[in-house]
Design a binder for these strands. Structure first.
Lengths: 143, 143
DNA sequence: TTTTTATCCTACCATTTTTGTAGGATTGTT
DNA sequence: AACAATCCTACAAAAATGGTAGGATAAAAA
């Protein structure tokens, strides 16, 4: 019942990118340093965000990354699904899986409810929310 | 972000035990058959429930298992913690772990909230609730 | 046009976790 | 003493996790 590092790092990466002001350059190198994530591993994190359409990039020298949508329009659920095929707190909730006990299992109903609760919460918080929280934290630290 | 089989099987085992009427015998063999869980693996499932104080047993011939508390007084969270050291949707929420980013990480606040949401839901549902659901399902199937 | 510096791509792999199996020891009833 | 149940611990295959490695490609700058 744990989030993997890709989702965790992906979330932190998204928050950092959201903090980028227009015209300001943030390179993979910077994110790697600030977030203390291995430069090479970050390759895969960003690739995940990119193929989910959350980040757009420009190649070449003097390029960098940028969020593809407004931070307020990217939920944590978006980040999650960038690194997971879908949310399923137990196997039998996945589309591909068919459980023999389907339809006669009270436990499944519980897991469905839990899945909904988690999904709803992941969808209810955006990168904008978390950036605001981060700004607040930074302010406190500066005092 | 998945529940492991021990928790899942443990939950189903608890529901089955809750369905036991006073004086009625349910053996490991029965649970194994009804729940389609390997008899030997069930050893470990029951051991977990036992060491968490959720199930009491009597050894020897003609013995069997029984819930240690009223089904209404056992939550899914109790089952969960029988098989996990504690609920922590990310590493840095565990007591032992100290993260260098502690106190300056907005992401952590999100994970704390999610952790609370999940914990609250696990605590809000009891074995009694799920047994009632199961009885309802069985009724529907009988029609 | 060559160099530099950034992103992009994909293969591999060590470690850990998961999901069991196996074999027998122990206990209490018959 | 035999039997039928629970109890205990070691082992192991398979899958998932958390990376590392090495270079290919793209565009700006020299």
């Amino acid at each position: 019942m744990k989030m993997n590092t890709k989702v965790r790092y992906g979330l932190r990466t998204a928050i950092e990118l959201a903090s980028k002001k227009p015209g300001e350059d943030i390179y993979q190198k910077d994110i790697s340093m600030n977030q203390e994530i291995s430069y090479k591993y970050l390759d895969q994190i960003i690739a995940g965000l990119r193929s989910a359409g959350l980040v757009t990039t420009v190649s070449g020298k003097k390029s960098g990354y940028i969020l593809a949508r407004e931070p307020g329009n990217i939920s944590v659920y978006d980040i999650f699904t960038a690194f997971n095929p879908g949310l399923a707190v137990v196997e039998c909730l996945s589309d591909e899986v068919i459980c023999k006990r389907e339809g006669k299992c009270a436990a499944k109903y519980f897991w469905e409810e839990l899945n909904d609760v988690v999904e709803k919460h992941l969808k209810s918080v955006t990168i904008k929310d978390l950036l605001m929280k981060q700004v607040e934290i930074n302010k406190q630290l500066a005092e």
